[in-house]
Design a protein around this nucleic acid. Structure first.
Lengths: 183, 183
DNA sequence: ACCATACATGTCAAAAATGACATGTCGAAA
DNA sequence: TTTCGACATGTCATTTTTGACATGTATGGT
């Protein structure tokens, strides 16, 4: 009976399924989009988890390089485990923790004037981040097959997410500024 | 020096700022939209946290009702703490953990045929959930001032989120089905 | 030769979260 | 009247996560 906090396990398995990497490289991956939108983790949880994964036979150390680096590769058992997780319908909804979204939900604790200030900041921030991703998309061109293509899928996901929050924030400000509509 | 996992603290403070509630009612609140999109927590973390909040003078027990229930009310200090948190610009990006989004990022570990199956499921699921929220919005009418109005803001946020993921999933399926565009 | 920086891995105590267990109340239906 | 389910609060051992600390290597600049 293994514990149920399997998400880090699968995040690691998923990254290694694309290509073998060292713990250090995996840590870097969590500092980009993956960690920003999907799942954050630091090296202090990644290294021990890699050890457990190796014990369970889901990954293997296939090379040791300079500066003591160890390259991990996913095994067949690991691939099976990952596919099972991805293909299984999410029975109970997965864990969700997002501090930014929490702030939005807590807006009701502010008076409307303060809420508008916070919404304004959200609108600016998401607008900028969407702009960055749009620029990246232009450079990349059409979606190609293979791992890079999948990366573009994730980037597009992030872009649409930011755009949605951006327009929502603008809409919400409008609602708060406009006094209640009279009949 | 208090720990830095302050999000549950502020979630509780924010809920109590709208109206006084018991631990049980707060737990229920985390089982709805708040827990689904923003921050999940069970009663086993809520009750101890309420105790700590009371110790720090941020909330008070203002009534004890039937079946041993205790109604907590936020104090002035609690309101100040909450406002400080909400109005402070998010210096380093907040913690993010979302199992669903993680699955989307890990799609690259599947072959395109399997990925399309998963995307299909996401599209159906988000489409349904968006439909539910749209129905709720129709019943509720225009956004009004006060706490209910803010609740509508959060609902609209959820709706737009689902719509964005829905159209993204459809788009992504299109990309995967269509073989690479020839020049 | 020295130094800063990025590379690279780890431990460990403390804090936080989870799941299992435990206890008891109140109202309504059978 | 008894039993069921919702109400209501809690503990506790285990697991998970974090932040601080610790160690050492290769590279490029000065």
């Amino acid at each position: 009976m293994y514990g149920c906090g399997m998400s880090l396990t699968h995040a690691l398995l998923g990254l290694l399924a694309v290509e073998p990497r060292s713990g250090y490289e995996l840590t870097k991956a969590f500092e980009t989009d993956l960690g920003r939108y999907a799942w954050q983790a630091g090296h202090t949880s990644i290294y021990p988890e890699l050890g457990k994964l190796a014990e369970r036979g889901l990954v293997e150390v296939t090379a040791e390089g300079a500066r003591g680096s160890k390259t991990y590769t996913v095994t067949d058992a690991g691939r099976t485990e990952l596919r099972t997780w991805l293909m299984s319908p999410p029975t109970r909804q997965g864990k969700v923790r997002n501090e930014q979204v929490l702030r939005m939900f807590m807006l009701s604790a502010l008076d409307p004037a303060d809420a508008v200030v916070v919404l304004e900041r959200i609108a600016v921030s998401t607008g900028e981040q969407a702009e960055v991703l749009r620029a990246i998309r232009e450079q990349a061109g059409p979606v190609e097959p293979g791992p890079e293509g999948f990366g573009q899928l994730a980037a597009e996901y992030g872009l649409r997410q930011f755009e949605a929050v951006h327009t929502w924030a603008l809409w919400a400000m409008e609602q708060l500024r406009e006094p209640v509509a009279r009949s």
